Simulated scan of single mutants.
Amino acid sequence: MKSSFLMLASGMLMLLGLNACNLNQVDSSQAVYDEDLKEIDAYATTQKLNGKQTASGLYFVITKSVPSSKKPSLGEEVMFTYKLSLLNGTVVDSTAKPAFYPFGLGALLPGLEEGLSLMGEGETAILLLPSALAYGTQGNSKVPANSVIRFDVQLIRSRTEDQQIDDYIVEKGYKLTNKSTTGLRIIKTLENPTGAALATNQTVTVKYAGRTFRGSSDFDAGTLSMILGLRQVVSGFEEGVGQLRVGEKATIIFPSSLGYGSQGRANNGVYVIPPYAPLVFDIEIVSAK
């Protein structure tokens, strides 16, 4: 049976955490917006913040500057820490470990994502978000409706998929066997020089386990039979399988351009594979006929 998560992407697009509001529920009325800006101005004056305000109403102060540092680009993975507070000083949430998110896809609160776009790697900032850029009219269990909120943020780094893959290989201590022009990396863990080479239109049986770099467990695992060359599975998986022989095992790593791209893959409204996520598969070629 073919794995549902190895099939071509279905076109689903969901939102990740830290957004916690539907933009249709945000109260964008001029009166609320004006009150938010007055509250932000008063708070900034009291706190002696010397910041700037964007056209959206976001107020930001770079508290540690790193001149000419790299800013995030669409689809990169941003790594950052944060503390989320109400303006009365109540801490709502904070990171014990760095958070990782794909940048520029609406996965974060609009004001937080805009704030990160203004920061470079290594910089820290204070962000004051009007409610329309935060939790809007709905609020949440800890943030009252129509609340201005504060983020204290450090942008640690922003990495392309290629950089993420290279870092992952170093981190895991893998010895690279091959890198193709498409970006696929192959790390053979069991070679079988006498095993039969694979050919187009063969039915190949493969044992596999797939994971993302940030996932705590495999998102899918099992055994599947596929006809090589018919594009029955995502292209990175098919390309990796096609470069092995019967009896061989390998870890294959490929960018989202060979997987689920900017759409990712979701299950019951929750991302299993985020947008722009490189994928890792441990595979074994069981047979081919």
Rank of each mutant, 00 (worst) to 15 (best):
S3Y: 06
S3T: 04
N22P: 00
N22F: 02
D27T: 01
D34S: 15
D34K: 11
L37A: 13
L37D: 03
E39L: 14
I40H: 10
D41F: 11
A44F: 07
A44K: 13
T45S: 15
T46N: 15
L49Y: 00
T54Y: 00
L58W: 03
T63E: 00
P67R: 12
S68M: 15
K71R: 14
G75A: 11
M79L: 15
F80P: 05
L84R: 04
N88M: 01
D93F: 01
A99N: 08
Y101Q: 14
Y101E: 05
F103R: 13
L109R: 06
P110G: 13
S117L: 13
M119A: 13
G122P: 12
A125D: 00
P130N: 10
Q138K: 06
K142V: 02
P144V: 05
A145S: 06
N146K: 15
V148N: 05
D152Q: 05
V153F: 05
R159S: 12
R159N: 11
Q164K: 02
Q164I: 07
V170E: 13
G173T: 00
Y174G: 01
T177N: 09
K179E: 01
I186P: 10
A197F: 08
A197G: 11
T205D: 06
S216Q: 14
D220N: 11
L230D: 07
S235V: 06
G236H: 05
E238R: 02
G240E: 02
G242S: 14
R245D: 01
G259H: 03
I273W: 01
P274T: 02
Y276G: 10
E284I: 07
K289L: 04
